[in-house]
Design a protein around this nucleic acid. Structure first.
Lengths: 337, 337
DNA sequence: GCGCGGGCGGCGAACGTTCGCCTAAGAACG
DNA sequence: CGTTCTTAGGCGAACGTTCGCCGCCCGCGC
């Protein structure tokens, strides 16, 4: 199964007739070695197909060039984009990423952290909404290791990179207000989540700006899913048939809203305008195309990784908090093309 | 930044007054050690917050309990589910997963492999369609390390786990035939891909079974995307207005087909039936809900990982080829609820 | 012709483990 | 009371690196 036993620096050394330490120097570019020996060593290394052992290197260097990524469900397309951005940035800087997911209700939390610590990751990137309230986690992380999180985490040592969710809610709702709507409902994501609360705050602020008052009856929980949003939409219109616009706090739910409206016979956008949030791929292709707020998940991932690697490089643990800007993308579902 | 310097087994040993080797024995459950010493050591370990260093362990054990996952774009929801399944299974068996993505056109290929080798992964899971034809890759992998791939890979040493794409095409098309359709078009994914070819084969076989002959004009390339599928649909109907059913080779394209049909004024399913493939979340919520073939991506990932870990455990390099079954999910878009 | 400096490369140690072998007691036994 | 067995635990080595120090030898300058 192993054709040639793993070749180490010693094998290369033997082949080229120098000590293995000298070989190491050459392979790392350093040291003062004559050009001929250098060439000979390099040649031998390539002949033998030498591949350095990062495990051993990490052992002496006391760092692994590895980042631990703790994520919620990978299948979430938004999270996927975040991960994609993070991984790419890590790679660009010569780091590897080791992943672990935690189940919906935090199962695996107690496993994830130890696994990362055992592997001596240089830092941790957190992208698990379900850990927002995990105090034990916060305690472990606090001041122990560089950590950047996509979501808010209790405790002080953790930096956060995210997008401006309040602005997202604000832009979406302002857009509807500008379209002349006065009775604007909203379908919110999971209650209690940071993202939800922020977007809701933006919604309220926009209403306030327009001199409209917030009405509890106009906010329904769609639990972040299509089916939940459908049900929420139905409830909203039963209660308040005069609604003329809905701000769905994410595009998935917006799709649910769209299909519910179709079912109850409200044409979009003339009977009811809809604005989503996230700008998933599909948003451009719903019927009608969905007006939404673009959330830069990919860039957020890259930025979070950048910040993390920077913290590692400088050894500074400044718990910064970065918010990336978002912008509205007007499409058919709100009446403007 | 580091509150207490990393605690090693030696620290634990010092604290409990035994040699570090004995400590190691205790921590690994082995060795013959009296109960009192054992307890003392365990206590010290927990007091000090000892976390074993897997790097060091790997060095001597000659295996890392790490699997390298080389994936195409993470943002692909199907791939995400595959990854999710794979990661979960790995975790269940005490392995970690380290990821790297390769760009659309194979960029990063030359990087991905060395990175995995340097980290001495125990095996590699390949989920990058763009590597199907990478011969250099195949050469490196061949007989060098356990590898399981989601897609076909040239060379002999690589096992494959996938879903039965031919069956998928067959079931989808049979369903349309059974619905009385005689002029059934298909929108295919990227030409030349294994998946595409297999599904197309299933489509042709179903036609054959029904005594219909395959017609080049009825197959259009939708390049796997919504927009591509829209364009393909338009081309199809310009050429053959008599089409009464479309098999879209994946659900994303099916959504494109649906929106194109709406635009050209063909009601679904009465004017034209549509069947997709993959069973993405959204499929149940299109208008009308999409009949599709369920592809078990999550299970495929888990199964692939299972096979890989099994290969590693037994040291056998039997290049098996596993196909997971698929099944049709009838919904509104094909006329049957 | 002698001393000295510098380029080249060797060598020991350390990183944190696991593993197998060895030994010092104490227990059991005749 | 001496011999052997067993048991608890020590010890050296190895895994594959990096790093700093040291010594050799050659060449140059006086």
């Amino acid at each position: 199964m192993k054709p040639a036993r793993r070749v180490s620096v010693k094998d290369v050394a033997a082949q080229s007739g120098v000590s293995f330490q000298t070989t190491s120097k050459v392979l790392n570019g350093g040291g003062s070695v004559s050009d001929v020996t250098r060439a000979r060593i390099l040649q031998a290394a390539s002949d033998l197909g030498y591949v350095p052992n990062l495990q051993a290197r990490s052992l002496v260097m006391q760092r692994t060039r590895t980042i631990g990524l703790i994520a919620g469900d990978f299948s979430d397309p938004n999270l996927s984009r975040f991960i994609s951005g993070a991984e790419q940035e890590a790679r660009r800087q010569g780091y590897s990423v080791i992943i672990t997911s935690v189940g919906r209700e935090g199962s695996g939390t107690e496993y994830a952290l130890p696994a990362m610590m055992e592997r001596r990751v240089d830092g941790i990137l957190l992208a698990a909404p379900q850990m927002e309230e995990d105090l034990a986690l916060a305690h472990v992380l606090d001041r122990t290791m560089p950590v950047v999180s996509l979501h808010h985490v209790p405790g002080e040592g953790v930096a956060t990179v995210g997008s401006d969710d309040e602005l997202a809610g604000l832009l979406a709702t302002r857009h509807l207000v500008a379209g002349g709507h006065r009775t604007i409902a909203t379908v919110i994501g999971g209650r209690g989540r940071q993202t939800t609360e922020s977007r809701l705050r933006g919604y309220r602020r926009a209403l306030e700006e327009a001199g409209l008052k917030f009405d509890e009856d106009l906010a329904e929980d769609g639990r972040g899913e299509i089916a939940g949003a459908q049900a929420a939409t139905v409830r909203l219109f039963e209660r308040r048939p005069e609604i003329t616009a809905v701000f769905a706090q994410n595009d998935t739910m917006a799709i649910g809203v769209l299909s519910a409206l179709q079912r109850i016979g409200k044409p979009v956008p003339d009977g009811c305008a809809v604005v989503g949030c996230d700008d998933i791929d599909m948003a451009a292709y719903t019927e009608p195309p969905l007006t939404t707020v673009h959330i830069p998940f990919y860039e957020t991932g890259a930025e979070a990784m950048r910040l993390l690697l920077n913290m590692i490089a400088t050894g500074s643990l400044v718990p910064r908090k970065v918010l990336l800007p978002v912008h509205l993308i007007p499409r058919g579902s709100s009446g403007r093309a």
